[in-house]
């Protein structure tokens, strides 16, 4: 049957695709953020940006995605209608490689993830509301298909591969009735599982004078304090 044959052709080519498509293990990261991961951003990971007052989470999520879009890969912001696009541009995101996906229900969220995981290399997700089973299914699919997920405003039923805490230390430029916001000094801590179990931290300007993320100090590795 023609159809079956066609499927066979496609399957054949897909197998070849598995052999020849770029299958690196990491996505690129802007240099100031590399200390948090001890290098580039591993594919297939769940990166959770912890919710806290005065966090720099949206800027951090964009800065984490910037280098991936700059190399020509598509990034999807899922459930993120209020994403600041000018900020995205200034932080280094290639807007020609960004798609904003609005979803109105958890069914749509699941549908979108189902189609996107494995097809795009990096997904940024805001306010992901899934149950435990769905979270487990998602994380295992991300791992096997090599898609990395950055989440904000999301509490995970599974343990994310790495969690980042981005706290605002100070804003520069704004006074008492004068000036305007110019620079923000942010402390970012990271701690994860397995290879990332050592806590790391870095101080950055987010944004710096050019609107980009810039290193504000040399990274200070923090010795992991774990209960024995």
């Amino acid at each position: 049957m023609g159809l079956a044959k066609h499927q066979a052709v496609l399957q054949h080519l897909q197998e070849l695709d598995g052999v020849v498509s770029p299958k690196g293990t990491h996505l690129p990261l802007l240099e100031p953020l590399q200390p948090l991961f001890g290098g580039d951003l591993p594919k297939g990971w769940v990166v959770s940006l912890a919710a806290q007052a005065g966090s720099a989470n949206s800027s951090l999520a964009l800065a984490l995605a910037a280098a991936t879009t700059a190399q020509g890969s598509w990034v999807v912001a899922l459930g993120w209608p209020s994403l600041g696009l000018v900020a995205a541009h200034n932080l280094g995101v290639n807007l020609n490689r960004l798609v904003i996906a609005d979803v109105s229900s958890s069914e749509e969220t699941l549908l979108a993830l189902d189609i996107l995981v494995g097809s795009v290399e990096l997904i940024m997700v805001n306010n992901l509301r899934l149950n435990g089973r769905e979270h487990r299914h998602l994380t295992s699919r991300l791992r096997t298909r090599g898609t990395t997920l950055i989440s904000v405003n999301t509490s995970w039923h599974t343990t994310p591969d790495i969690t980042l805490w981005a706290s605002t230390l100070s804003w520069e430029g704004l006074g008492n009735g004068h000036g305007h916001l110019r620079l923000r000094r942010v402390n970012i801590r990271s701690r994860g599982r397995r290879k990332a179990s050592q806590e790391r931290s870095v101080q950055v300007w987010l944004p710096g004078p050019e609107g980009k993320v810039e290193s504000a100090s040399s990274p200070v590795p923090v010795t992991s304090l774990r209960a024995i």
Binding site: L10, L16, W74, L98, V99, A101, S104, I115, E121
Partner: peptide, 28 residues
């Protein structure tokens, strides 16, 4: 066409946009 990851992504967007409400997927 399956060789290109970028095109793989574009195909996924087309597919998703045909399943969601019109204009659910947007580009800047």
């Amino acid at each position: 066409e399956l060789f290109s990851p970028a095109h793989e992504a574009i195909k996924a967007f087309r597919r998703l946009s045909s399943l969601l409400e019109p204009a659910s997927l947007k580009v800047p």
